[in-house]
Design a protein around this nucleic acid. Structure first.
Length: 187
DNA sequence: CAGCAGATTGACT
DNA sequence: GTCAATCTGCTGC
C-alpha cells in the first residue's frame, strides 16, 4: 500500500504520472477486484478551469477535494456514472487525480458480472464510468481513505512508455482544456 | 463501423 | 432550467 506521503506532494501532475502502473483494489461484499492503473488525469484545483474546485469553489460535493491527500473523491457525472479521483496535496488545496482506466488483474469474473459482460476485453475498466462500475465503487466511497480495508492503492509495475495528451470531455474549460495533464501507459 | 440520442442528479446562471 | 471529468445501444451508411 502506498504511504500517504505519496499523495501529499503539491505537484498534482507529477502524482498523476506516478500513479500509472500502480495497482488499485477494492474489496466490496467480500469480493476482491482490482488492476493496474493505465490512465490518469491531473486536476489542479483552484487554477484549473476543468476542476470542480476552480477559483476556490467549495460545495458539499467538492468538500472532499479540500481534504488532506490520500482519500477518494467519488462523484456522480451525467446522472449515472460515478467517477473516482485520488485527492492529493495538503488539506485546503483541492488537487485531485482522476483515475480513468485500469488493466484488470484480480476478480475479473466479478467485474464481468458487474459490467454484464461474458468475456474479458480491453473495455472492462476502460473509461472512468466503466472503471467504477467494474470495481463496484459508488458514492458511498466518497471521502474514504485510499489506504482502507475496502479501497486501496498499492505498488505495481514500472511503466515503460508514458503517453501525454490533453484531457477528455472538458471542452468548456477554455484554454485549460488543452493542457497536457492526461497520462497513459503505452500498450 | 461511425455518429448520435438517451439516461439522470447535483450545482450553477 | 441547463449543463456536466460518460457509456451504451440503436441507426444508417
Amino acid at each position: 500500500m502506498l504511504p500517504l506521503s505519496f499523495y501529499w506532494r503539491s505537484d498534482v501532475v507529477q502524482v498523476a504520472k506516478d500513479l500509472l502502473g500502480k495497482t488499485l483494489f477494492t474489496c466490496i461484499d467480500g469480493q476482491l477486484t482490482g488492476g493496474i492503473i493505465i490512465e490518469t488525469e491531473g486536476y489542479a484545483g483552484v487554477v484549473d478551469r476543468a476542476s470542480h474546485a476552480y477559483s476556490g469553489r467549495r460545495t458539499k460535493r467538492t468538500e472532499v477535494m479540500y481534504s488532506s491527500g490520500g482519500v477518494a473523491y467519488v462523484y456522480l457525472c451525467y446522472g449515472i456514472h460515478c467517477l473516482l479521483n485520488a485527492v492529493t496535496a495538503e488539506e485546503g488545496t483541492p488537487h485531485a487525480v482522476l483515475i480513468r482506466a485500469l488493466h484488470p488483474t484480480h476478480g475479473i469474473d466479478v467485474m464481468l458480472q458487474r459490467r454484464k459482460k461474458t468475456a474479458l476485453d480491453a473495455t472492462l475498466a476502460a473509461g472512468p464510468g466503466a472503471l467504477t462500475s467494474a470495481l463496484g465503487i459508488t458514492l458511498e466511497h466518497n471521502g474514504l481513505s485510499l489506504a482502507s480495508e475496502s479501497l486501496w492503492i498499492a505498488e505495481g509495475i514500472a511503466p515503460e512508455n508514458i503517453l501525454v495528451g490533453p484531457r477528455i470531455g472538458i471542452d468548456y474549460a477554455g484554454p485549460d482544456a488543452h493542457l497536457p495533464y492526461r497520462f497513459r501507459i503505452a500498450k
